[in-house]
């Protein structure tokens, strides 16, 4: 079994988001980039399948410039066998999905893992687009996955519960919490990651679907109205007067 894990290179969860003066791009100076946490759920699950002897190969893929290579090396340190970088600026979901689908096509991946969304753009479109482009089944918001016979049994989050899904392989799975526990790479993994293959592939031509024209900050909140413990009732009355409770 071969598994492909899509990795998005995103600002660390503690990043204070600052846009450049022209409002056209994110100010990346001083920002630490990490593996998108949702992608990491899929990555660790893939490695677990490998440890259980069910998968032979776990490949990670990212669309991005040379700056994403440390993020791919971290995925290799966690345990992926090899990495692919599509050498292009990830302009939008359609472009990224087009690159990954083109790379994956015909290579015999049984599972393509991705995250439910990236924590920067929160788009959540890439995995479903890859599935559609490759004409594969797609299980979104997956919280569990087991291999069973020649297929898989998954759990998928829905409003107020979970669906139990049976799927054939190959399948595209977008992951969220529950799929696995994040891992911190150990020293041996970090050493090994330096010599694992990282292939750089030139992009194919894909039309972009959307263009970013700029960024803004959400309107700032007014200041907080405080009550003392003794005035708790006043808080309740304020909420009641606003029609909230």
């Amino acid at each position: 079994m071969k598994i492909l894990v899509c990795i998005s290179h995103v600002p660390d969860t503690t990043t204070k988001i600052v846009f450049n003066q022209d409002g056209k791009s994110l100010n990346a100076s001083g920002v630490t980039f990490i593996i998108n946490p949702y992608d990491e759920f899929g990555l660790v699950r893939a490695i677990e399948f490998q440890e259980q002897g069910k998968a032979e190969q776990v490949t990670v893929i990212c669309v991005g410039g040379a700056e994403v290579e440390p993020t791919l090396r971290k995925a290799l340190a966690i345990g992926a066998n090899d990495a692919v970088r599509i050498n292009a600026n990830p302009t939008d979901a359609l472009f990224v999905a087009g690159q990954i689908a083109a790379y994956a096509k015909g290579k015999g991946f049984d599972i393509i893992f991705a995250g439910k969304e990236s924590i920067d753009y929160n788009g959540g479109m890439v995995p479903g687009m890859i599935a559609e482009m490759l004409e594969l089944p797609f299980v979104s918001f997956a919280t569990k996955m087991e291999l069973a016979g020649r297929g898989a049994v998954l759990r998928r989050e829905v409003d107020g519960g979970e669906e139990v899904i049976e799927s054939t392989l190959p399948v595209v799975v977008s992951c969220q919490k529950g799929m696995s526990e994040w891992r911190i790479p150990n020293m041996r993994g970090i050493m090994a990651s330096r010599t694992k293959p990282l292939l750089v592939v030139e992009p194919i031509s894909v039309a972009t679907g959307v263009q970013t024209s700029g960024y803004a900050y959400p309107s700032a909140k007014g200041s907080c109205v405080y009550f003392s413990t003794e005035e708790s009732e006043n808080l309740v009355n304020a909420l009641h007067n606003k029609g909230l409770i």
């Binding site: 979901a93 359609l94 999905a97 969304e117 929160n122 788009g123 959540g124 479109m125 890439v126 995995p127 479903g128 687009m129 599935a131 559609e132 482009m133 797609f138 979104s140 918001f141 998928r156 989050e157 829905v158 409003d159 679907g209 959307v210």
Partner: peptide, 23 residues
């Protein structure tokens, strides 16, 4: 932007060659 809406939308976008975005 529900669980099912988010699963269907990207596929529709590819099928009809549309620009797709969420949020």
């Amino acid at each position: 932007q529900t669980y099912n809406g988010r699963a269907v939308a990207p596929r529709v976008a590819i099928k009809i060659d549309a620009s797709a975005y969420s949020g």
